[in-house]
Design a protein around this nucleic acid. Structure first.
Lengths: 344, 344
DNA sequence: TTCTGGCACTCGTGTATGCAGAGTGCCAAA
DNA sequence: TTTGGCACTCTGCATACACGAGTGCCAGAA
């Protein structure tokens, strides 16, 4: 049917935009009279009321109770984000400040820590930054260190600056020459490879060693592969939880499930995982899979050192948030973190 | 003067203990009648009222308003903790559960992560665990890896399983033989040393190299020392913030400064820093230096792999908390983490 | 056909009032 | 020193009421 998604005329869209903007500002249901006063819509309150009735009919807004003002629904915010709002670019001073703040970082941990704090502060919401993912990164170096006759420490260094280490208990004593040989051969084959490709690249390695050493080689490789796989369980950093206190009036009920969700790395990872790589993703209210976040929105985007995104970052806030501003901040921060990573 | 700290007789102390216990349980001001009903004090409400008046006179309890029940003051909790309460030991099943949960950890990060979650869950409060400090730990191995002609990666591995890495930009090309030599000499001198002692142990090292290599050696050492010093800025892990929602009725005001404090690693570090190493420390309300935590109590204790404490852990909760239970949980967890660290 | 002004109606909020319950302080007697 | 009794105070809750904001609808104007 043609009428399934009824076309809203321009003025109705303008009314919706005005409602969203006012509600985000005041946190209070917005009525027809206040609307025409604050935005010059050029029509009377009565007209606006008719438009509001239509918007409510379509499910874009609703009233908390009869004879109160209107509040945008998830669907209303969705339309606002998709059609009515432009991402608000950061001002030049803001961009300089971001740049300057991130430039001071000394290592990867510090980059992530600064990023997350910056994002929380800019948006005055909860910020989440995923560590650059191991799956996307490549091997810079693999080091083997004999700590005891049958104990080897394995250190994996990636091009994103991340370091993973594992203890390996070998089946027998490991000679220094064998270890050196193994180290050289592993690095020759693995350096520059993407982590998921490493196992394939090292497949024939055990066959290249004397029979007696094969058990050791296999053990070391097994540990390495395990480190590669297991650390796909990726890490996340969080900041700005104190901003949750500005969430709503009906406090404990709103804030508790959110705090609980934030403590579950798994939830956060899934949340960011839903981001389509390149474009900015906005999940509004019920659109979030996780129930505890049903009254929040998540704005996230991928970032990376170069053309490709290696991880995601974003912010979590009330559905009633300043979408243009938040999206602008998220985009700007992602861009600069990418640059920093590319440089280092 | 003898009267400066007036002696309270046994029954008054019993009344105070009962008040604390009841108030912790119910979160409501406790009156004389309820008190005699729930504890068999063997006296009438009127008598208890007299005792309460005396306790209030001394500042151990107070009334929120006339004709309401009494609430313990910080001073009252202090007396309770010092004289009236015993640390409540964990039950055997609880101890087994702790043990079992911590045993599953695979590396240091995991140990800390599990510990902090466990502690939060056991006490239903906010838990804080400091990473085993670098100052107290010793060098297990130092690795140097040539990544490019003039670029060296330095990896520091400690006996607590912590790994730090730094990039070193050398003044000139570094030969592999020189690097191997340097690596060997550094390890010969530094392994087993406590981190703060390392600089002294490596003092004469540059002099042992050819003139041309000294600049490189010095650069590497400088970076190493810097890593040693800088990483004294210690890390902390946090869990259980969702438990804050059970804090009080007067919500946003209570919870916000606490959340803010928890985001400041510096504040948390100072907080734990005040713990005297061996004994368990309890800071009640205003006793906390940081203003935002004036209505919370901090229970903390050192833990370590062996006889000596290498870091601290603790929980943060409302002054109205179950001190005996919390202290028992904190002590038990600290003990088991120590064991785990000693084993690995 | 679309917009506008007017009007009656509906609710939520804030204030005042009253009442029951819990707790205290004090006093005189045991 | 303890106890029972009594008057007093304060909170919490419910009821009642007036006010204001906002709506929906309708008839008339553009």
């Amino acid at each position: 049917m043609a009428g399934e998604v009824r076309q809203l005329d321009d003025r109705k869209l303008a009314v919706l935009r005005a409602i969203v903007q006012d509600y985000v500002g005041t946190e209070e249901p917005v009525g027809s009279k206040a609307l025409v006063e604050r935005h010059n819509l050029g029509v009377s309150p009565a007209t606006v009321r008719n438009d509001m009735a239509a918007l409510e009919e379509e499910g874009y807004i609703h009233q908390p109770h009869t004879s109160a003002g209107r509040i945008p629904s998830d669907k209303g915010y969705r339309l606002f984000v998709d059609k009515l709002a432009e991402i608000k670019p950061m001002s030049a001073p803001e961009r300089r400040a971001i740049r300057h703040f991130l430039d001071g970082a000394v290592d990867l941990d510090d980059v992530v820590a600064r990023t997350v704090r910056l994002l929380a502060q800019l948006t005055r919401q909860v910020a989440v930054v995923q560590y650059p993912s191991l799956t996307r990164s490549t091997v810079r170096h693999i080091e083997l260190v004999a700590l005891a006759p049958a104990k080897v420490m394995l250190v994996l260094i990636t091009n994103t600056g991340r370091v993973e280490q594992r203890m390996v208990d070998c089946p027998g004593t490991v000679g220094e020459t064998v270890l050196a040989d193994l180290r050289a051969r592993i690095n020759a084959r693995a350096v520059g490879q993407r982590l998921p490709d490493v196992p394939a690249a090292l497949e024939e390695l055990p066959a290249m060693f004397e029979q007696v050493d094969r058990a050791t080689v296999s053990t070391v490789l097994a540990t390495l592969f395990e480190a590669l796989a297991e650390q796909n369980e990726e890490r996340i950093m969080l900041a700005g939880t104190a901003n949750l206190t500005r969430l709503g009036h009906d406090f404990p009920l709103t804030i508790q499930p959110v705090l609980e969700a934030l403590e579950e790395q798994v939830v956060l990872l899934r949340l960011l995982g839903e981001t389509t790589d390149a474009a900015m993703t906005v999940r509004i209210g019920r659109e979030n899979a996780y129930e505890g976040l049903n009254s929040t929105s998540v704005v996230s985007v991928g970032y990376g050192s170069g053309d490709e995104s290696v991880a995601k970052l974003g912010v979590i806030g009330p559905t009633r948030m300043d979408y243009p501003g938040t999206m602008g901040a998220v985009r700007a921060v992602a861009r600069y973190v990418g640059q920093i990573l590319a440089e280092s």
